[in-house]
């Protein structure tokens, strides 16, 4: 897939860069303040996961447009260790970043669509989307 914009995640500061880019795109698409804040938080979580568990990866953005709605697509891609039990990671209370992060269940709640493809030893790709209500 050819993404319009991507941010490489290697250092903690890159998370801020990803949030900034995501927020700008969300604003341009026409999301309101509350949704912008939610999208930024989801990006934070996705980027933090890459930074903490994969070491490095990418956050990419896509403007979504269909006949009747507009939205944003966010892709978190890494070549890290991958996840063995995706269903465990998606359980409430099985929080990742030190127990305080919203974790992936939080990302799912912040967005409208959510998908994970993960292979042990190869990496993980998380796809999320949010539509303007």
């Amino acid at each position: 897939m050819d993404f319009q914009s991507c941010v490489t995640i290697q250092k903690e500061w890159d998370i801020v860069g990803a949030r900034q880019m995501g927020r700008n795109i969300a604003k341009e698409i026409g999301f309101g303040t509350v949704d912008q804040a939610r999208i930024a938080t989801a990006i934070s979580e996705l980027a933090r996961n890459i930074y903490l568990y994969a070491g490095s990866g990418e956050i990419c953005f896509e403007r979504l447009e269909t006949i009747d709605r507009k939205g944003i697509g966010i892709y978190a891609i890494d070549k890290g260790p991958g996840m063995e039990e995706v269903s465990r990671v998606m359980e409430d209370g099985f929080s990742t970043s030190g127990g305080l992060g919203a974790g992936l269940p939080g990302v799912k709640r912040l967005m409208d669509e959510f998908d994970i493809v993960s292979e042990v030893g190869k990496g993980t790709k998380i796809t999320v989307m949010k539509w303007i209500r």
Binding site: A37, R38, T41, G93, A102, L110
Partner: peptide, 18 residues
């Protein structure tokens, strides 16, 4: 302030689900 409340909102949703 709105930005700082997002995580509280998530915690509330998690609480409701649990």
């Amino acid at each position: 302030l709105l930005e700082t409340m997002i995580s509280y909102g998530l915690a509330l949703q998690e609480f409701q689900a649990l």
